[in-house]
């Protein structure tokens, strides 16, 4: 049943999985370019990265990490099922993986829309100025509500040491903004700097990297879900069994790779400044 140009079936299986690994090495270098840009700019704008990262919804980030690791589990079980020709389990866990993937993307949509509302999207309309005058069109209330986990944990265990600082920081930043605003004298500056120029230097670079990295990751998720629809179609036809499961296995490798990228994205983008040490 192997293709004409291979001598034995094992040779074909080895070749296709080795080919998949070479493809993943290429993907490592592809994301590597983004990570090197992150590394360089974090070294250059250490403080700005911290402040900008504080605006991310770390609760959604944590939830997404759990969802994605879960989908890695279901994918591994699906691959295992294919190897043991358990058709129903294969289909069930492929569907589970797709569902978890879709949830992940849904959460990303929520995060992105929130960023657009708060004008924290790089581009002409960008404005991010926690210390200076607040940006026009951005209402203050949102910043006061700490994210879900803080409110839940604070409610249950009272004021936990590290956990409530994020909330205070949110509040403190805004009060500081008002104080700051009054104190800054109106210098007789000829032209007026746009809100984008008044934004914190380096914060737009952070948000550019945030959208580039999570966007490219989300794109890989969408491609993954598309491939799963194709695999699901053939799984229902009973194509995959203990004799022929390489497409499922190769897709499994791809999916785990996308999960590993997120395992690094979550701490590097979301968690770099939660302890609010003596920075500000």
């Amino acid at each position: 049943m192997h293709k004409h140009h291979f001598d034995t079936f094992d040779q074909q299986k080895d070749a296709s999985s080795f080919g998949m690994w070479v493809f993943l090495v290429q993907e490592i270098m592809f994301f590597g370019g983004l990570f090197v840009a992150y590394l360089v700019y974090r070294h250059q704008y250490y403080m700005a990265f911290g402040t900008s990262s504080a605006t991310l919804r770390v609760d959604l980030g944590l939830f997404n990490t759990i969802v994605l690791i879960g989908s890695s589990l279901t994918m591994a079980i699906a691959v295992n099922a294919a190897q043991r020709s358990l058709q129903k389990r294969l289909i069930a866990f492929l569907l589970a993986t797709m569902a978890l993937g879709a949830t992940f993307l849904g959460v990303k949509v929520i995060e992105y829309t929130e960023k657009f509302e708060k004008r924290e999207v790089p581009g002409a309309n960008f404005c991010f100025n926690p210390q200076g005058a607040p940006c026009k069109g951005v209402s203050h209330e949102e910043e006061k509500t700490p994210d879900l986990i803080q409110r839940y944990l604070n409610g249950r265990f009272g004021k936990l040491p590290g956990l409530d600082k994020a909330a205070e920081h949110g509040a403190e930043a805004t009060t500081h903004a008002e104080a700051g605003e009054a104190a800054a004298p109106e210098p007789g500056v000829p032209g007026e700097a746009t809100e984008r120029q008044r934004s914190m230097p380096g914060s737009e670079v952070y948000f550019s990297l945030y959208f580039a990295m999570t966007g490219m990751h989300a794109l890989h998720m969408i491609v993954g879900i598309g491939l799963m629809v194709w695999l699901l179609y053939w799984a229902t036809k009973g194509l995959y069994s203990a004799e022929y499961y390489t497409p499922i296995e190769n897709f499994g490798l791809y999916w785990h790779f996308v999960d590993i990228v997120w395992i690094f994205l979550f701490p590097l983008l979301y968690l770099i400044n939660r302890h609010i040490g003596g920075h500000h």
């Binding site: 770390v58 944590l62 590290g162 956990l163 600082k165 994020a166 979550f266 701490p267 968690l271 770099i272 939660r274 302890h275 609010i276 040490g277 003596g278």
Partner: peptide, 8 residues
Amino acid sequence: TYYAAFQD
């Protein structure tokens, strides 16, 4: 890693 992030 989530918890460690909140400790200074």
